[in-house]
Amino acid sequence: MFKLIKTVFNTGSVTTKYPFAPMSVSEDFRGKPELDAAQCLSCGACTRACPANALIMETDEKAGTRRWELSTARCIFCGRCEEVCPTHAIKLTQNFELAVTNKADLYEHAVFSLADCSQCQRPFVAQKLLEYVLDTLAQSGVPAAQLSERRKQLQTCPACRRANNMLDSDNISHLRFIKEQQ
């Protein structure tokens, strides 16, 4: 009994001062994800990696836009989005003070305008993503003439590309092989 009283007495008061003083968390604490919109390309890697579908992308073909949405409500704070983002656009902060009375305040959006396919004219990829890929190629030394060829090639939607490959008899790979043999 005395040991207990001594222990309690020696411990004193351990209660934290929060919320009257700021609460410190570990350096690596996984709090709310924050988007650096300038770096985001709408590539969708975070959307595919998110286990809880807290990150959503929706395409509006008529308006030619693609919308990215983050739901802090559904987020499980795992950090997979941060790991897979190719441009370090989304990062988890230390913010844990997330309670709200209005559910709409838990959502964030970003809207991207889409570029049209050069063949079928249907919007299929964000303009920003296309420019980023071309900038990367330019920075790695691809000459300007080739770049404009690549632009035409890249600005073709997957359906048109498939169709092109099947009908392009000169460039189909197995035929190319046979030609070389001869």
Binding site: V8, S26, D28, R30, F77
Partner: peptide, 26 residues
Amino acid sequence: TGFMQFFRVREKTMELAELLTGARKT
């Protein structure tokens, strides 16, 4: 009293988890 004291010590283990992984649980 013992119950509260054990939970006080337990908080240190949760801090340890947060230090090593970034979250107290999960």
